[in-house]
């Protein structure tokens, strides 16, 4: 990288930069939809290659500080994690850590506990998506209507999105309290039996999903309304003129056009859903039993409750491997989003 980072001395020749710069204008700032991140100079003639080279060289320099952060604080720990996963380091054990090969993977990854945690994580994720997307789509369509007070409703629905998960989690915990909480009291008013929200396995799973989805719904509505706003109206109008019903227009015109935005939103939710930690930590700590113990919660427990650093590292390495394919998903989705 040092060779590439050699200084590009001297002022760039203005005239040629000018012509290269006017090749295309990048995605406009005001557009709410996905924005292309490259392709600017793709069609530049060979004679102009040296401009691209100079840009490339300064780009290497400009991204250097980012690497200064990533190498010691991201890659080094990941490497240490891989290393530790082959040892038996446990805090508080008197003996020196020794090499144990794949033992940690055998005992902690190929265990029903890890499998259960994976299922719980995916279950919360799937339940959440099933809640957030139909509801989010419906709300986005409603908010897309021309009406008085639209901004007020939109604001109200967006507010939960960025609230501190720890703080709202704690208040939900209070509201879920079976004896003193307001949710069971309301159920009582409606003549329904109270639910032991955080004490029974399925209710606890729903309770966690609901709090997470409460915040996520805001993001989904935000993304979909922005997506709807960016769609051209002419195809919809044309379909309507042709006599299509509201549902047909949505199903065959709006939905396909919105697909890139939906996919991007879906991907964000899948990533964040897989990472879920704060809300679980505050609401249930993974309980009752292991009913809401997600992979992050399990890894945390092994590391910081059992003090078993090496075993937690093995789980971490597997979670890392599970995350890797997301990169390819990401590329596919962003290519799709850019094409639209």
């Amino acid at each position: 990288m040092t060779a590439e980072g050699a200084p590009a001395s001297g002022a760039p020749s203005a005239g040629s930069v000018s012509s290269a710069g006017s090749v295309s204008s990048a995605g406009s700032v005001s557009s709410a939809g996905p924005v292309a991140s490259n392709g600017r100079l793709a069609g530049a003639p060979p004679a102009r290659n040296w401009i691209a080279e100079r840009r490339a060289r300064s780009a290497v320099l400009l991204t250097l500080p980012t690497w200064v952060f990533l190498v010691p604080m991201f890659f080094l720990p990941l490497g240490v994690g891989i290393y530790l996963s082959f040892y038996d380091k446990t805090l508080g054990f008197p003996m020196e850590p020794s090499f144990v090969g794949l033992d940690n993977y055998r005992t902690d990854v190929l265990s029903p506990v890890f499998g259960e945690a994976l299922v719980v994580t995916l279950l919360i994720l799937a339940l959440g998506l099933a809640l957030q997307f139909p509801l989010g789509m419906a709300l986005a369509l409603l908010l897309h209507q021309q009406m008085r007070g639209r901004g007020v409703f939109r604001t109200a629905i967006l507010v939960p999105m960025l609230l501190t998960p720890v703080a709202v989690g704690l208040m939900w915990r209070f509201m879920y309290n079976p004896e003193l909480g307001i949710i069971n009291w309301w159920l009582g008013v409606l003549g329904l039996p109270g639910v032991d929200w955080l004490g029974a396995p399925w209710p606890a799973l729903f309770a966690v999903t609901f709090v997470d989805s409460w915040q996520a719904l805001s993001l989904v509505v935000l993304m979909l309304t922005a997506g709807l706003a960016s769609l051209p109206t002419s195809p919809e109008e044309a379909a309507r003129v042709d006599g299509a019903s509201g549902w047909q227009v949505f199903r065959h015109v709006t939905l396909p056009a919105l697909m890139p935005v939906i996919l991007v939103t879906l991907m964000i939710r899948v990533i964040d859903g897989f990472k879920i930690f704060d809300v679980v930590f505050i609401l249930t700590r993974g309980g009752p039993g292991t009913a809401t113990q997600t992979v992050s919660m399990l890894d945390y427990n092994v590391a910081f409750t059992f003090l078993a650093t090496s075993r937690a590292s093995a789980i971490g390495v597997v979670l890392m491997l599970i995350t890797l394919p997301i990169y390819f998903l990401w590329r596919r989705v962003s290519t799709l989003a850019e094409r639209s």
Partner: peptide
């Protein structure tokens, strides 16, 4: 026990 005992 009261209903909340299971998760308390």
């Amino acid at each position: 026990s009261p209903s909340g005992a299971l998760g308390a």
